[in-house]
Every structure is written in C-alpha cells, then in structure tokens.
Design a protein around this nucleic acid. Structure first.
Length: 110
DNA sequence: CCCGGAGGGCGTCATTTGAC
DNA sequence: GTCAAATGACGCCCTCCGGG
C-alpha cells in the first residue's frame, strides 16, 4: 500500500524515541472516587469491598492505558512507513541526478 | 455454503520505566 | 524503595477471504 510520503513527520530516526510524538491529554473518566473514611475500613466485608473497588479501578485504568498504548504504536508505525516512502523517493531522485551528472561528464570528456 | 487460516482489536496479567 | 503509567505477552473473539 503506497504511503503518500508528502509529510516528513518529526524525527523518526527509526528508534523508539519517536514513539512518543504528540502526547494527547488523556482524560480519565472519573466514575470512581477514593473517598473512604478510615473508620469504615474495619469489617472484613468492607475490606473486601475496598479491595474489589481498587482492583476494578486498576483494571479500568490499565484497559485505557492499553488502548492508548496501541493507538500510539499504530501512529508510530504509520510514521515509520511514511519515512520509508520519503526516503525511497529521495533515493530515486538522487540516483537520477547521479545518472544525469555521469552522462554530462561523459559527453564533456569526448 | 461452510471451513479454516490470517489479521486486527480487546482485556488482563506481568514486567519495565520514570517520577517522587 | 514505592507507586502509577506504559508496554510486552498471551489468549480470546470477530471479521474477511479463498478453497473445497
């Protein structure tokens, strides 16, 4: 699939440093709140509920982190593909230029 | 029409990374 | 050292497509 290659995109040196380009502000859905009064943390029942709530919050956050991570990875790969297209074009151009110069040189020395 | 393989997205767990 | 965020790895599900 041909990539347009008209956008050089940032650094993209090929290493993972290009992985974090633009950092979109992630807004977590604030459906969960931390407020639990210390006095309520005593019965085993409440301790279990607290543990469950913490786990669910952790899973929710990680779920969203994973999504974001995949999104960034896809973007990074696109960026690399773009860069490949740009470099291939540059290479073609340089080869043509070299050929033209060689021709010119040959005719001069005749 | 129905398999079965390929490819992609998702959620979860484990591990790594970075900030404090 | 501790904690939260980021990422890798795994398994599951869904969709698409070619072959029988």
């Amino acid at each position: 699939m041909a990539v347009t290659g008209d956008e050089t995109e940032s650094a993209a040196t090929g290493d993972m440093s290009a992985y974090q380009l633009c950092s979109p502000t992630s807004s977590l859905p604030q459906g969960v709140m931390m407020a639990v009064s210390p006095a309520s943390l005593h019965s085993p029942q409440q301790l279990a509920e607290e543990a469950t709530r913490k786990r669910e919050l952790r899973l929710l956050k990680n779920r969203e982190a994973a999504r974001e991570c995949r999104r960034k990875k896809k973007e990074y790969v696109k960026c690399l593909e773009n860069r490949v297209a740009v470099l291939e074009n540059q290479n073609k151009t340089l080869i043509q230029e070299l050929k033209a110069l060689k021709d010119l040189y040959c005719h001069k020395t005749e």
